[in-house]
Simulated scan of single mutants.
Amino acid sequence: MSADPWPEGIGRRLLAEVDSTNAEAARLAASGAGPCWILAGFQTGGRGRRGRPWVSPRGNFHATLLLHPEGPPDRVALLSFAVALALREALAGLTGLPQVFALKWPNDVLLNGGKMAGILLESVGQGRGVAHLAIGIGVNLIAAPDPGAVEPGALRPVSVLEETGLRIAPEALLDALAPALARWQARLETEGFAPLRAEWLAHAARLGEPIRARTGTAERQGIFEGIDAQGALILRTAAGVDTIPAAEVFF
C-alpha cells in the first residue's frame, strides 16, 4: 500500500526517547512551535486517561499531534472521533484486515474485541477557545500489557502482532495516520460532525447491545443506542434514555 502524501504545513519530529509525547507537545507549544507530529521510540512516563500509566515498549506506537485549533472547546473535543476514525482507517489499510477493527466510545480502537489503542486529548485554554491541543495516541503494535495489570472488567489488551501476525513499524503507521487524520479533520471543519458520526457508528463496537457506563462512582446499565450530534453516548436504561457526555464504558 502506498502512503498518501504527508499533510502540508504539519511538522514531523522523531525522538529516540522522551518522558511522554504529550509532555513534549506542551513544551513545544510553550515555545511557539506550529502544528506537528511527535513520534517517540520509547516513553519513560507515558500516560493514559485519568493519569494512568501507559506501557510504552520499543516497537509500539507512541505519538502526539500538536495543534492550535480554532473554535470552542466542545467543538475541538470532536477531534477525538476524527482521530479514532483515522487510526482505524490507517490500520485497516496497513493490515488489509478492515473487519477486525472496531471503535469503542469514547475513543478506543479495538482489534478482535480487545483494546489495542488509546487516545488522550489534553488542551490548554485561551479565553473561550483552546490555545493548543495535544492528541496523544498509543498503539500496541508488537506488545500489549499484562492482562493482570488492567482494571477488573476492562477489555483484554492485545497487540497487532499477536492478533494478526503482522509487524508494522511505528514510522509506517505515522505515514498512514497523518494524512488520514488530516482528511477527517478537514471534513469535520467543512461538513460538520454528521459524516464523522455516521462513519463512527458504522464501526461501533456493541451497538444495540447492553453496556455499562461509569461516571465517577455512579454506574448505569442499558442498551448502547448510539451517539448524538455532540458525540455524547446514548444509553437506553430501564428509566428511559440517558445522554452521557463523559464516562468510561464497560462491556
Rank of each mutant, 00 (worst) to 15 (best):
G32M: 06
V83S: 05
L174M: 05
P145G: 14
R214S: 04
R183Y: 00
P73S: 08
A84H: 00
Q43M: 04
G114W: 03
I135Y: 01
G118V: 05
R49V: 07
R13W: 09
K104D: 00
V100H: 14
R212K: 15
F42P: 05
A204K: 06
D242H: 15
G138E: 05
G118E: 02
G32K: 08
G114C: 05
N22R: 06
T243R: 15
A3Y: 11
A144F: 08
I168G: 02
W184L: 01
R88E: 08
G93S: 07
V76Q: 11
A30C: 15
E248F: 05
L85W: 00
A202I: 04
L91R: 00
L201S: 10
R52T: 13
N60P: 03
W105S: 05
D74I: 13
I227W: 01
L166M: 10
L121A: 08
P57D: 06
A149G: 10
L85R: 00
T243Y: 10
E17T: 12
P73H: 08
S2T: 08
A3W: 11
R206V: 06
W37Y: 09
R156S: 14
G240K: 07
L67G: 08
K104S: 00
V130R: 09
G208S: 07
A40S: 12
T44H: 11
G71Y: 06
A238D: 14
F42G: 11
I244M: 07
R236G: 08
G46V: 04
A86R: 00
A186T: 13
L14V: 15
A92T: 00
G71F: 09
S56I: 09
I142W: 01
A3P: 04
A84K: 00
G96F: 04
P170S: 14
R220I: 08
R75G: 10
K115M: 11
T217I: 07
